[in-house]
Design a binder for these strands. Structure first.
Length: 543
RNA sequence: GCGCCCGUAGCUCAGCGGAUCAGAGUAUUGGCCUCCGAAGCCAAGGGUCGUGGGUUCGAAUCCCGCCGGGCGCGCCA
């Protein structure tokens, strides 16, 4: 509540309703980049001017008049200034900028947390790789994104389930088994007798070599290969720092009759019809371009039926908010799955589930693109990236761009210029502050008692204000499923700290001033640690 | 051909429910370690925000066309 931004907003809301009774306006507050425009700014006068058909500056003047009293009693600023076309700017008093430091020290790891999703049961499904090969960089992007989105929602009070869904019995698995069998028999990709669309990767050879049974034992090979690859994926995820609460097997949807049940419900609702020997679902009733086959003429189901059955379980398990993190190559399934859920007539909302689709990662090496495909034999794996640049760098890097932007991972650059990865810049700020405390001593009592009014240097006030932005950054990132906003924000906190550190000595002789400065630095450190934690990146005390 | 996404500095990318939005990093150039960590700081140059229209007092941001790129468009998963 002590956030000056909220106070300013309330003051302006009162002012706006005094000047223009009955006019509904959403007051927007910005933080101007240009210091000449004060610390907080609003264009509410321009918005009202439109509704009132009056000159924006006149409206602004009226608001200034109406808010004089409330602003003074709020104590956050001396006065409102009118600028430009009618902007309302205020300069915050140092005391109100710096107050956040005490809150950070009190709240610790909880600083920045919100209640937007309090009490909600949320599920984030991501990675969901089939056990047919090692995880590739696309899975890495999903892992980094999904885990960060889950953490952001938890930070807003949600109870989050991280879920991994995989196909353990379909045609892909058959191909896997045949490929291993062929390898076991000494065949190589391209040889006569090599399975069509078989997996060519070297890991197939590894599995074949380690399989203790005979090449004729296809079922045994299948079980062994799936088990082998599941373990490998688990190890990769562990190295990546991602943990799942639930692994959901597609095969269970069949064995528990859930796929059949979906067809029954659709049929009962009159959403199916027979044509050309197949059973079709009227997805066009829900915005699809054309109807889709649900049960093929050979009696088997198309993939989206179990997909719908799976999402039905999400709804039935009580998840009212579900986020699926997938590559954009899956975007055509969005409409289909949603349509299928609508056709169940269970009251599932139209926009259920939410999707975060990320563009596929393009890996460049030696100036050439490395093709990413499970079916191709050679692709860059998550494990490769971790080995090359380290877990922290991979996670920070993969999450520091918005999901739908094209992503070029230049392996050579990552290899050669490890030190220039943004993650080190942020971690360095954290380590630097830790280093100061190593020489100054950790004394929470002294920090808590520090007289924050001694902080008056512009860079101190700038850092304090930056720290106070963390709450809204975390809240917005959670709402928009956009962890990259946190990554960008952390760079700014680090920049403000580094700049301050170079401009002013922190460990000064004056004990009171030193305590105040250390308190500010401790707040910055806590903010960086909290932010990095959301991204699954460590905050090292030494580097 | 249709659908979705993208096009912002040499490069990698933020900003996109309009105004105080022309930004960051990197690269280039020039400064800063007898002093808390130089993995840092300070400064400079660099962009008609793909393009042409439209809406608006005001558009990188909203709408339409076009150009360029990506991904989908199966009784594959």
């Amino acid at each position: 509540m002590a956030d000056p931004k909220d106070i300013f907003r309330r003051v302006l809301e009162e002012g706006a309703s005094a000047v223009a009774p009955g006019t509904a306006v959403q007051v927007q507050i910005e933080r101007p980049k240009n210091a000449d425009h004060g610390d907080l700014s609003s264009n509410v006068a321009m918005q009202l001017a439109k509704a009132l058909r009056r000159n924006p500056r006149e409206v602004a003047a009226a608001i200034v008049e109406a808010t004089r009293g409330p602003l003074a009693s709020s104590g956050i600023a001396e006065r409102i200034e009118i600028a430009g076309a009618g902007f309302l700017n205020i300069r915050l008093k140092a005391a109100s900028k710096v107050r956040v430091v005490r809150e950070v020290l009190e709240q610790g790891a909880r600083f920045g947390a919100g209640e937007r999703e309090a009490g909600k049961s949320v599920q984030v499904e991501f990675v969901s790789a089939n056990p047919t090969g090692p995880l590739h960089v696309g899975h890495g992007r999903q892992g980094a994104l999904g885990d960060a989105i889950a953490a952001l929602l938890e930070f807003q009070g949600a109870k989050v389930t991280r879920e991994f869904y995989y196909n353990d019995a379909g045609a892909q698995i058959d191909k896997l088994a045949w490929s291993v069998q062929a390898r076991k028999r000494g065949l190589k990709p391209g040889d006569a007798g090599w399975p069509e669309e078989g997996y060519a990767g070297e890991y197939i050879e590894d599995i074949a070599r380690e399989f203790p049974g005979k090449a004729e034992d296809l079922d045994g090979i299948r079980r062994f290969a799936v088990d082998y690859l599941r373990k490998e994926q688990d190890a990769d995820l562990k190295a990546f720092g991602v943990k799942f609460d639930v692994y959901y097997l597609e095969s269970s949807l069949y064995t528990e009759g859930k796929v059949e049940a979906v067809i029954e419900t659709w049929t009962k609702n009159g959403k199916c019809y027979e044509k050309d020997g197949a059973l079709w679902l009227r997805t066009t009733d829900y915005g699809d371009d054309k109807d889709r086959v649900a049960r093929k003429s050979d009696g088997s189901y198309t993939y989206f039926v179990p997909d719908v059955a799976y999402h039905r379980t999400k709804w039935e398990r009580g998840f009212r908010k579900v986020i699926d993190v997938q590559g954009t190559d899956h975007h055509s399934t969005v409409v289909r799955v949603r349509a299928g859920l609508q056709a169940l007539g269970a009251g599932i909302p139209q926009g259920y589930p939410d999707y975060v689709l990320h563009s596929l990662v393009k890996v460049m090496r030696g100036g050439e693109e490395v093709k990413i495909s499970k079916r191709a034999g050679s692709y860059v794996t998550v494990r490769d990236l971790i080995d090359w640049v380290g877990r922290d760098a991979v996670r920070f890097f993969l999450v520091s761009r918005k999901a739908d932007s094209d992503f070029v991972f230049d392996v050579d650059l990552a290899l050669q210029k490890t030190d220039e990865n943004p993650v080190y810049y942020v971690q360095y700020a954290h380590a630097r502050i830790c280093s100061m405390f190593a020489s100054a001593g950790q004394d929470g009592e002294r920090l808590a008692r520090a007289n924050l009014d001694l902080l008056a240097h512009p860079k101190e006030l700038a850092l304090a204000q930056r720290v106070s932005e963390f709450r809204e950054v975390a809240a917005a990132a959670a709402q928009e499923f956009a962890p990259h906003a946190v990554a960008f924000y952390l760079r700014e906190v680090a920049a403000d700290f580094h700049s301050y550190y170079n401009a002013e000595r922190i460990l000064v002789e004056d004990e009171a001033l030193r305590a105040a400065r250390l308190a500010l630095c401790a707040a910055a450190r806590q903010t960086i640690a909290n932010g990095l934690s959301l991204l699954g990146v460590s905050a090292p005390e030494k580097m």
